[in-house]
Design a protein around this nucleic acid. Structure first.
Lengths: 335, 335
DNA sequence: GATGCGCATGTTACCGCTAACAAACGAGGC
DNA sequence: GCCTCGTTTGTTAGCGGTAACATGCGCATC
């Protein structure tokens, strides 16, 4: 920067100003600085800038996994919103564990991010304490805080009601006249559980709930797992006439296995998935599922964060917002 | 840090040493410093550390897209390898454009990463010049540099031969006795083109090449596109008896459309995909495809980078390595 | 007991930039 | 013509660590 300053015949401070806030210097100086800067190939060091200004222009983004399309979409939304504003996302992978999340958050905080985006609300007490101590905005995604807020801690959430979405599926299957409606779930994180709770409530409300028809396993969801679990359900409860699978990959696996076993869908068995992942509209028959606004959640979370990071008086933490982006039941041919 | 130093009754420098290289201080001081550090909740600022030591512990990772599973797997491999070593990946999205790549690279370099991982070898002259000027290790992935190296510029690559992989598919379809073998490709980046070149060569070598049976479109690949293009090929060339689709999502779309049109696979039409994406083994019938070592490429690239970043005398740039991780033809039932 | 060496710790001077304040200057008001 | 004010530029003093060198000390050696 000193070299550029010398070349442009100004002070280093003026170079800094000319590049960051061109409107604060005279037109003539701005041009000289830009020319010199370009000619010398000057790239301002963000590290030094961060140290001096106490703004790193980075945002910690913690997600459970890189192999789950749901969180990739979230990340994509965050990335495409932050990037044009000059913010760099720092991704951290928590592997679905609150303890690991706390560890990852601690290492991310060492980078002094200007904001934090988390997945879910299922954090350790240590994480909550850590968050309470922060002076930067924090947004929780993919879930909604209860209307009353989270204990004494003001919390900003962007997401949708997992419970309501699960309820919608249960209600839909019941409305189709199915009586023996089963549930298959994997990856039992709190959000999955809430979906299941919603589904359960819908069946209770329509007088169809039978706990025997629930099959919940902790394993990560996959097409293979869906195929296997379908077979297990039909083996123990051959009278099942509808099935809610808590993620589309499970549902796809189930459909493939049905095709192989010669079970007609939806005539003999109705199938519903969740998330409307790529390809759900293209299975045979096309899969009924719930479209979740994952990318939009990422975009909105990033927007709120940018707003919160802009005004350095973090009053936004005082009036927590609860942004419900909803969901859509996509009724296709499997139900 | 000054507070911790005071609390432990030592100088700031000793605190720094005690936390970074515990073996360089006495056992007693180390314990005192750790206790004080924990008690005060001290988190060393990586920003300041980076400025003082000229090591940011970050790595720029440039990939074309977050919505293509291929690069997510690459990223996952990189992330899981860098993270335990204390390195933080900085992701940059280039959108498949060399110009955008150059822009993104420039902004990433402002963060002073200790290393760079790029996708492919298709860079602008500006990018090559930028890379030549760097004193940090750079690794190109998903492709292999020619044996002779890239011009005068020593280049490290980790990947596999896209050409050979395409050739393997062509040869396989020919070996199955197919005579009218078509090609469907989207997302025409250089790697896709190389696959097509390989396929073409295989057909030439077996006397089957017919340029009319090639359908190449620039659009991003998707299940929907695969379905659409399949129909187009069969409309213009109904005698096609085998098809190579340059990505599994295209192939899945084609399979779905075949199912709907009542075209028996593989009897009437053999279908081969590429990449062995999740679900390829679970289509009906299971899809023949090429398994590519995407995650392994990420892991290996990160390993090489870590090695290169460790010895600060960057001699590793002098003897560029060409790590070929190969591929595997997964013969399933669609051929 | 003087000498030299290695280890543990301290001191100094930055790393490259920016916040905050100071100064210089021209324009407009009285 | 003097004063005030706003605009533009410069000066100073860090931001929070770490490299490099300096110092002090205990111990083996002769």
């Amino acid at each position: 920067m000193a070299d550029v300053a010398a070349a442009a015949g100004v002070s280093a401070m003026t170079v800094s100003r000319a590049l960051r806030r061109p409107d604060t210097v005279s037109e003539e100086v701005r041009a000289r600085v830009e020319e010199a800067s370009r000619r010398l190939g000057f790239v301002p060091s963000r590290v030094a800038s961060a140290l001096a200004s106490a703004r790193t222009m980075t945002v910690a983004v913690l997600i459970p996994s890189l192999t789950n399309a749901v969180f990739i979409d979230l990340l994509a939304g965050v990335q495409e919103t932050l990037s044009p504003q000059g913010y760099q996302p720092l991704i951290g992978i928590t592997g679905y564990g609150p303890e690991a999340e706390e560890r990852v958050l601690r290492t991310q905080l060492a980078h002094d991010p200007d904001g934090v985006i988390l997945s879910g609300l299922d954090h350790t007490p240590g994480t909550w304490e850590l968050l309470r101590g922060l002076t930067i905005p924090v947004i929780h995604t993919m879930d909604l805080v209860a209307e009353g807020g989270h204990g004494d801690c003001p919390v900003q959430t962007v997401g949708f009601s997992q419970f309501d979405a699960g309820y919608a599926v249960g209600a839909h299957l019941a409305a189709r006249g199915r009586r023996r409606i089963g549930l298959i779930a994997g990856q039992l994180d709190p959000r999955t559980r809430q979906r299941c709770d919603g589904w359960r409530q819908a069946l209770r409300d329509t007088g169809r709930y039978d706990p025997d028809l629930e099959l919940m396993v902790p394993d990560a969801t996959s097409v293979a797992l869906g195929a296997e679990l379908l077979e297990r359900v039909l083996a123990t409860h051959p009278d099942t006439d509808a099935l809610f699978l808590c993620n589309d990959d499970l549902a796809q696996g189930a459909l493939f296995r049905c095709a192989r076993l010669g079970i007609p869908v939806p005539e003999r068995l109705a199938v519903a998935g969740f998330n409307d992942l790529a390809g759900a509209a293209w299975t045979v028959p096309p899969l009924t599922t719930v479209a979740t606004p994952r990318r939009a959640i990422g975009v909105e979370a990033a927007r709120l964060l940018i707003a919160g990071m802009a005004d350095r008086t973090p009053k936004s933490r005082e009036n927590p917002r609860r942004v419900d982006l909803g969901f859509r039941l996509m009724v296709r041919e499997t139900t």
